[in-house]
Amino acid sequence: MKSRTRIPTTPLLMILPSFLLAMSIIGYPILDLAWTSMQEVSRFGKMMGFVGLVNFAEVFRDPLFYSSLVRTVIWTVAVVGGTLIISLPIAIMLNDDFYGRGLARVIVMLPWAISLTMTAVLWRWSLNGRAGLINATLMDFHIITEPIEWLATAPLAFTVEILVGILVSIPFTTTIFLGGLSSLPQDSYEAAVVDGAKPWELFRYITLPLMKPFINIAIVLNVIYVFNSLPIIWVMTEGGPANGTDILVTYLYKLAFRFGQLGKASAISLIMFSVLFVFTIAYVLMVMRQEHDSADEEVKHDA
């Protein structure tokens, strides 16, 4: 076999600038973190020499690391799970035609437009124990008789933060689902209706299986985003009270920029990076499989 395709340089030149920038801004810090994590580092960022895995050992001896890790898992599972359960029915409704759908879409998407920081600031004020208007509203409706200090105790604060986390993840997830729903073949539904399927059966046997790839992608992307999300917890409680709402990212941020434990912080960064990496590979494989399937379909259409 001979191949006569010239190596095209034009497209490579076209992707080069974006590639170089991404490499230096995203690639370099990873290497730097790996290097730093095996150094003894002074408070002021001075390298004091190679110490191997000492920083990692220290991380694994740290009880706060474990409690943050456990809370990260709870945070991620609860927010992603809650988001998915709420988003799918919402997407199905928003995909259907009803009066005021445009307005409903705008409202549901609204949290996406606002930065997480602002949202968290808004909620921090709304939930204020003394003057927060959430308490005022609940008291007006006689749901509670006394104002509640929402953010003063760790378990309650963490629960509230999870709920806010769900709220801000809904728009993105709903958007993925809406994209998926609009790509579902209409004739499958018509065929199923002719076959005598009821609405619930349509959902169970047509929508859900066809939406599976989109649900998978929504899970992976949300896991990555939520796992990494700092602003909500940082703004609302800064991981407190008494480290009671710390997850890995807030703990990492404190170590690095409050306590100046750069070696240990780098080690945690790397640990988190590897977790993320696994999820990213899962995502890439998933996307590739989907592309592969749709490529197959294209071939079939061509034939």
């Binding site: 995203i26 370099y28 810090p29 990873i30 290497l31 730097d32 973190l33 730093t36 990555i224 985003y225 990494n228 700092l230 990212v249 990492l252 941020y253 690095a256 750069l262 912080a265 780098s266 960064s269 988190m272 990076f273 993320l276 990213t280």
Partner: peptide
């Protein structure tokens, strides 16, 4: 890759 994981680097 989120900024937070790389923020130190």
């Amino acid at each position: 890759m989120s900024p937070i994981v790389l923020v130190l680097g």
